[in-house]
Every structure is written in structure tokens, then in C-alpha cells.
């Protein structure tokens, strides 16, 4: 049984249809790249899965449940924005996550903090965008969650830090978990994907094993993406 089951999902903001009759099944034990141009509905889909958006049509099930209090306990969600209060320090954020998520591994979080060379007593409001993103990634990856939803986890970091982040993601990812990673930076991350899901304006354009897609098209996922969305990008 798929860990995430989405059937005929529709979501609109006012008159703008963002997700259009989307159906998708994702299984545990895989790293899935959720790819698509700006405004194609990637973030909206992740917000629905995380339980942030409850007003939609269609069926969404995580581990057999609609997004609710049960699914929030098994989902580790990284939004593209900073969701920690400015007064907090990493040590406060660890306390917070430790209190609310039974699967939060504080030792792992402290190891990752050292790995990223962050100070556990530095206030978040004094951190750079990249430092904040690293801290949030630490919080999300230090959980032993069944589903990881990462929305542009490397949007604000320099190229040198991206490989370090990817290493951290891979090192801390549970083999039996499902990771959905939405990104524009396909070239940097496609090597870690088991599966790619291409969304185009709310609809499923392509889904498949990354190795099979590369073999079938004779191109990298980044090149396939550029080819599929060439019109929309140039337009």
C-alpha cells in the first residue's frame, strides 16, 4: 500500500486553479523529487500533505489517514520560509521539537549542528538566511519520521553548502521512510532521487524511476525537465 495516496486533488486560490485533478501514489522507502516550474503547485501540494491547507477537493491519505493530528506526528515538514521565532536559539528549537515530536533525536540534532558549524546559543534573528535553512533542515532531519516533506531545502544556500546539505539529508534519511523533495535545483540533487514527479500547472506531467527516465530519454532529469517545460519557461 502506498504511504501517500492522492486522488483527483483539486485546489484553487480564488479563480486560479493550482492543482488540477491530480492523482499520485508514493511508496515508502523512496526519495522522490517533486519538480516543476514556479507556480505549478509544488508548495501547495506539500502544504496539503503537511496538513496546513484543509480546504481542497479530492482525496488525500497519508498512512491511510486524511491529514490530521495522526499524520502530523509522522510527517516532518520543511517549508520554504523560516518558521522559527527570531528570539529562539538552536537549543530552544531543540527543546521545542523534543517536546512535541516523540521521534525527535536530540543527539542527532546536536551532531548535525556541529557538522554545519552552527552555534547552539546564537539567536535565530542574527543568523543569515542560509544558517536558518540549515537549522530548519537539522530540525526536520533529526526526526525519525515516516514522511519527510522538504520544500526547496537549498534555496538560500551557496553551492558549496548544497553538497553538505545533501550529504546530511542522505545520512539522516531513514531507509523505510518516504522523502518528497520539491526543488528547482534539479542538477544539484537529482543524483539522490529514486523517483521523479514532474508537475506542470497543477497536473502530473511525468512520473517514474529516475534511472528508467534517464535510460528512456537518454538525458539527465535536469535536461528532461528543461525540455518538458521549455515552452512554459521561455514563455
Amino acid at each position: 500500500m502506498a504511504l501517500i495516496e492522492i486522488s483527483n486533488l483539486n485546489k484553487s486560490y480564488g479563480s486560479k486553479l493550482v492543482l488540477n485533478d491530480l492523482s499520485l501514489n508514493l511508496e515508502a522507502g523512496r526519495i522522490v523529487g517533486l519538480l516543476g516550474p514556479n507556480g505549478c503547485g509544488k508548495s501547495t501540494l506539500l502544504k496539503i500533505l503537511a496538513g496546513l491547507i484543509s480546504a481542497y477537493d479530492g482525496a488525500v491519505l497519508l498512512d491511510g489517514h486524511k491529514p490530521d493530528i495522526h499524520t502530523r506526528a509522522i510527517v516532518s515538514y520543511l517549508p520554504e520560509r523560516t518558521y522559527l521565532s527570531g528570539w529562539m536559539r538552536p537549543v530552544d528549537a531543540f527543546d521545542y521539537f523534543g517536546d512535541f515530536y516523540g521521534d525527535f533525536d536530540r543527539v542527532k540534532a546536536e551532531d548535525m549542528l556541529r557538522f554545519f558549524n552552527l552555534d547552539q546559543k546564537q539567536q535565530i534573528k542574527t543568523m543569515s538566511k542560509g544558517m536558518k535553512e540549515k537549522l530548519q533542515l537539522i530540525l526536520v532531519m533529526a526526526r525519525r519520521a515516516r514522511v519527510y516533506l522538504l520544500d526547496e531545502p537549498m534555496g538560500g544556500v551557496d553551492p558549496a553548502a548544497r553538497s553538505a546539505i545533501l550529504d546530511a539529508v542522505l545520512k539522516n534519511y531513514q531507509d523505510d521512510a518516504l522523502m518528497v523533495l520539491a526543488t528547482h535545483l534539479i542538477y544539484d540533487v537529482e543524483k539522490i532521487f529514486d523517483e521523479a514527479v514532474l508537475l506542470g500547472f497543477g497536473q502530473l506531467v511525468m512520473q517514474g524511476e529516475t534511472d528508467q527516465l534517464r535510460q528512456q530519454y537518454g538525458k539527465s532529469i535536469d535536461e528532461i525537465f528543461r525540455e518538458v517545460f521549455r515552452c512554459s519557461v521561455s514563455w
Binding site: G51, L52, H70, R72, Y77, R81, T82, Y83, S85, F100
Partner: peptide, 18 residues
């Protein structure tokens, strides 16, 4: 306001609490 309706709401609303 901040904890529910600003960016911090992304954390508050995804906590496993009612």
C-alpha cells in the same frame, strides 16, 4: 498573530496537537 498567521504558523499548524 505571529504564531498563527505569519511564517511561524507553518510550525504551529503542523504540530501534532489539536
Amino acid at each position: 498573530y505571529r504564531s498563527l498567521y505569519s511564517d511561524e504558523g507553518h510550525l504551529t499548524h503542523t504540530l501534532p496537537v489539536r
